[in-house]
Simulated scan of single mutants.
Amino acid sequence: MARIGGFADDDIVGWLGLSPTLGGALGSYADAVYNRGRLDARTRELARMVIAGHNECAVCRNTRAEASGLDEEFYLHVDDWATWAGYTPAERVAAEFAHRFATDHVGLREDEEFWERCHPALSDELIVDLALSCALWLGQGRALRVLDVGQACRLTV
């Protein structure tokens, strides 16, 4: 049950209307992540889905990047990001970054071994795009969960 307004379970946009300036800015931020970011679709989607699991966000868990040609097999192994052979080493590094961004950001910052693996796999520019993308997903997903809005929605990115 939504903690604000009388929004339907599938209304992911209506609640943003309560804060049109910030809601509009959030929409622009999301547009930048999905349409202007430099992460390839597979890396972006794996990192996004790792964050979705930590946020327990139905919207994110049910969203698929169908336009990117990713199949359900790709999504079935998100919880096995560290070991599934179908993900590349760079995708696994991005998934680990997303996981630790959501669960232990200080440990991530201080882990020299991680950064030694990360830099050959992702350029500084991609690391920045990944960090800013994770910030969007973590923040927006947690806002949706805390306010209990939009939890029945199925979006297509």
Rank of each mutant, 00 (worst) to 15 (best):
G6L: 14
G6W: 08
D10F: 00
D10T: 14
V13P: 01
L16Y: 15
G17M: 13
L18W: 03
L18D: 13
S19N: 11
S19F: 12
P20D: 02
P20A: 10
A25I: 12
A25P: 00
L26M: 14
Y29Q: 02
D31T: 12
A32R: 13
Y34W: 14
Y34N: 09
N35C: 13
R38C: 03
D40H: 11
D40E: 03
R42G: 10
T43V: 07
R44Y: 04
E45F: 06
L46N: 06
L46W: 01
A47I: 03
R48E: 00
V50D: 02
V50K: 07
V50S: 09
G53S: 04
N55V: 03
E56T: 09
E56S: 05
V59A: 02
A65Y: 08
E66I: 12
S68G: 01
G69A: 01
D71H: 01
D71S: 12
Y75T: 02
H77G: 00
V78Q: 03
D80P: 03
W84M: 00
T88Q: 05
A90V: 04
R92P: 10
E96T: 14
F97Y: 15
H99N: 13
R100T: 07
F101A: 09
A102H: 08
T103N: 11
T103L: 04
T103C: 07
T103I: 06
D104I: 09
V106G: 03
G107V: 11
L108A: 10
R109V: 00
R109Y: 02
E112W: 08
F114I: 14
E116F: 08
H119F: 10
A121M: 15
D124Y: 00
D124Q: 07
L126R: 13
L126H: 13
L126P: 08
L126T: 05
A131W: 12
A131V: 05
C134I: 03
A135I: 07
W137S: 08
W137I: 01
W137F: 15
L138G: 02
G139D: 01
R142H: 10
R142Q: 15
R142A: 06
R142F: 05
R145C: 00
V146H: 12
V149R: 06
A152G: 13
L155D: 04
V157L: 13
